[in-house]
Design a protein around this nucleic acid. Structure first.
Lengths: 170, 170
DNA sequence: AATTTACGTCAGCCTTGTTGACTTTCCAAG
DNA sequence: CTTGGAAAGTCAACAAGGCTGACGTAAATT
């Protein structure tokens, strides 16, 4: 590490004019530990119902975009249809998701949460939002703005498009 | 969505005085998509060497804290010793990691990267840092500050302690 | 001397990802 | 109207990487 960074503000080391490997490494570790926290609460709930993170992801995006198709979901989640199908199968069998044949295009299946599914989604996202809300409150509005900016810049372009399409109401 | 937020700045909707479920959901999705980007580059490299994310995590923290013990690593990674051992076993067999019996406490095993291991770590972290650096550059120093603040607030307290201990040089 | 700690390992199980092959259904273009 | 290709579902087999439980060994602690 160069002596140059010795001039940065003591404790925090917030001088980001040059992005040292040190500072980048801290960001990497922050992502790692924060993601653990991010998933911890829903994970605990999912465990009690014999579901996993994969189910949560599917439920989240079906809730977010009711009537979305399977191939749409495949694109968002980035898994194979066999993998998704296994998860979707159990969700449908358990009465959390309803699959409806497309009226315009009969090959497509449009996915919806049932009332039961919506209730489950709510319990999962309530837990996740609670932590997010606490973090937002603790960090403040300016930090939240920066948080989102950095995350968006980290996404793969293709996924960023998905993200923005969702954001603007797909 | 209440009409009240209609007064927020047009495009961004950055009024975060009340944390709506909408805004929190965007943050949740941002975490999801960004984490995918975060792991994408190392994942591609790891694939070529028959390693997975688990190996990357182990290598990262051994590089970060050379001489760290197995139980230390267990605490940081939050997996069982059987799970970690499987990964560690292959890393040692492949000559990426060296395990050294403790001199003060002979029960402990201190873990180090070999030269080969350091080289691998560098190729992985170079890739990950490149994306992080680009994101930091794109978002700017203020955003980076906020990014870190929110992430830290999202961590579980126990993991936050680990994070800070690492941060301040363990 | 007995107990506890740190580590390693065997065996078996589960989730969630993968590939490959095959079928059904249906839209659209020739 | 036929045919090609897209969307979906399914079967089978496999791998990574989690997990639990049980057991063994060396070394520190009491």
């Amino acid at each position: 590490m160069s002596q140059l960074s010795g001039t940065a503000t003591g404790g925090g080391g917030e001088n980001l004019l040059f992005l040292t490997d040190e500072q980048l490494r801290k960001g990497i570790e922050a992502m790692f530990f924060a993601y653990r926290g991010f998933t911890a609460d829903p994970d605990r709930i999912l465990e009690t119902m014999d579901y996993g993170r994969a189910h949560h992801r599917a439920v989240h995006f079906i809730h977010r975009s009711p009537g979305t198709t399977v191939s749409n979901l495949l694109g968002i989640l980035g898994v194979t249809k066999q993998s998704l199908n296994r998860v979707l199968r159990t969700l449908i069998d358990d009465g959390h998701v309803r699959s409806e044949k497309g009226r315009r295009d009969g090959r497509e299946r449009h996915l919806f949460l049932t009332e039961k599914g919506e209730a489950m989604e709510k319990s999962l996202s309530d837990a996740q939002r609670a932590r997010m809300r606490a973090a937002y409150r603790a960090a403040g509005p300016v930090a939240v703005q920066g948080f989102r900016q950095v995350l968006e810049a980290m996404m793969d372009p293709g996924l960023r498009d998905y993200y923005n399409r969702l954001r603007d109401g797909a």
